[in-house]
Amino acid sequence: MHSTTSTHDSHAEVHPLVGHLVPVSTLLLTGGALVVLTVLTVAIHYVDLGEANIYIALVIASIKAALVGAFFMHLRWDRPFNLLVLVAAIAFVVLMMAFSMIDVDANSFAFDQGNPKTVQNYLDQNAKFAPITAK
């Protein structure tokens, strides 16, 4: 992709007031790549690779996200500060996710104790056989 996108669009010089004009070819290639990756990820889903499946799917999703961000959202040509804002937000989500998972993993015995009494009473009345209470 990089060889096609680094060529500057000639219109950018004609309209100095506008921001970066993303070339049509770049947009088409990005859209095409997104479609191909979507078909690919669905196809791989039908092959059972065990644990690896979800990681492959997430890697493909990340590539698609990077393509959308770089070209559709023209981050590639923006000031780096915009990218910093987005990456920082994602990084904090990942940080929160990591700490939540570490915490829950260490204390998960405390999460499977069943429902509080009021909740269980409600379930007993309204969804008698709901197997919600653990153990």
Partner: peptide
């Protein structure tokens, strides 16, 4: 957009925890 990412991020964390359990 960053607040939007954080908005959905909370739910992604909930997803990760539920899926881990």
């Amino acid at each position: 957009l960053a607040t939007e990412v954080l908005f959905f991020g909370g739910l992604f964390v909930a997803y990760a925890v539920l899926r881990m359990l």
